[in-house]
Design a binder for these strands. Sequence first.
DNA 1: GACGGTCTTTACCGATCGGTACACTCTGGG
DNA 2: CCCAGAGTGTACCGATCGGTAAAGACCGTC
Lengths: 186, 186
Amino acid sequence: MPRTVAERADALPALGEAFREHGFEGASLARIGERTGLGKGSLYHFFPGGKEEMAAAVLAEIDAWFEANVFMPLREDADAARAIARMFKAVDDYFRSGRRVCLIGALALNDSRDLFARRIRGYFAEWTEALADALVRAGHNRRRAHALAEETLAAIQGALVLARAMHDPAVFQRALARCKRRLLSD
Amino acid sequence: MPRTVAERADALPALGEAFREHGFEGASLARIGERTGLGKGSLYHFFPGGKEEMAAAVLAEIDAWFEANVFMPLREDADAARAIARMFKAVDDYFRSGRRVCLIGALALNDSRDLFARRIRGYFAEWTEALADALVRAGHNRRRAHALAEETLAAIQGALVLARAMHDPAVFQRALARCKRRLLSD
DNA sequence: GACGGTCTTTACCGATCGGTACACTCTGGG
DNA sequence: CCCAGAGTGTACCGATCGGTAAAGACCGTC
C-alpha cells in the first residue's frame, strides 16, 4: 500500500487536535485514526508505545514550539519589552485567538495528569521562569517579576477556559490585551 | 439488601469527585461504582438516564451551591464589599484552597462540552453578571465592572489549572489574594 | 404476616476499547 | 531485477465499555 504520511512528525498536528477535542481517555484509536487518516497498523508503526507515546510525542512537539518561539526569546532577547510583545503575539497565534484550547492545561485538569505530570509541570515552570527573566530585565525585582509572570500565565489559561465555556473567543482576546497592558505599560 | 444511600442526593458528592478526577469519558461506571459504593443497579435506579443524567445532576448541584453561596449574595447584599469578600472565602473553601479542580471548567475544555454547553455557559455567565453587579454597587461603572469580573473569573480558573499542573495549591491562594486586593482596595 | 414499593445484586448484552499479529504493498539501493 | 525494509490494511484478541433485565432483599403499612 502507498505511504500517506512518511514521517511520524506529519501526524502530530492531527494527533494534537484529537487529544485537544476529546482528552486523553476520550480520544479513542478509532477517532485518532479518523483524524490522522492513519490505520492502526501505521499508528503503531510510528508509535509502538500506543496512545501514551502518541500523547507524549504531541506534548514534546508543543514544548519544542514554545521553547523556540516563546521561552528562548523571553530569556535571551536583549530587548525584554520586545520579547514580551512577541510572546503575546505567539500566544494569540498558537491559541487561534481563543478558538483553540491548551492541551497541556486540559491534561493537567483531569485523568492523565499523573502520566504526564513531569512534562506538564515543566512546561508551566519553564514559561514562568522565562517570563520572569524578561520582566527582571525590564526593570522589576525578582519577587515582583515572578508574581507578574504567574498572574499572566493564570490569566491566559483561565481566559482559554472561559472563552471555550462561553463560546466567545473575544474573552481571550480581551484578557491578552489586559495582560499586555499590565506588563508593558509601566 | 439494606439500603446504603437512600437518597439520590447523597451520592452526588462522590459522583462529583469521580467526574473531577477522570473527566466525563474517563469516569467509567466501574470507577463511579467504586467511588459511590453503589452498584450499577442502584446507580441506574437513581439515574435512569445513565452517566449523562449523573453528570447533569452534579452540575445542577454545583450550580445551586454557587447560586446560594456566591451569586445571590453578590446580587443582593447591600454591602457590596462584604459580598465580594464572602465570594473569595466561599471560592477558597469550595476549591479546597487550590487542591480541588473546577469540574465545570474541566468539562468546558474537552469532550463533553457540547453535552452540557448550556449549563457550563450559564454558570460562568451568571457568575460574571453577579460579580459585575456587586462591583457596580461598589462604585465602578458597568463597563469597568464587567471587565473586572471577567478578569477575576479567568484568574480563578487559570489559577486552578496552574495549581494542579504545578502540584502547588499556593499558586491558587496567591491568585485569590491578588484578585481580592484588586477588587477591594480602591 | 402477607403485600407493594424501594432499593440492590447478579448475570448478561452488543459495542467498543487498546493492542497484537501478520500478510501485504510499496520503494530505494544494489 | 530483486530484495530488504518501511509503511499499511485487516482480522483478531481479551478486557472493558455503557446499559438492561430480572430476581431477591428490605422496609413500612395494614
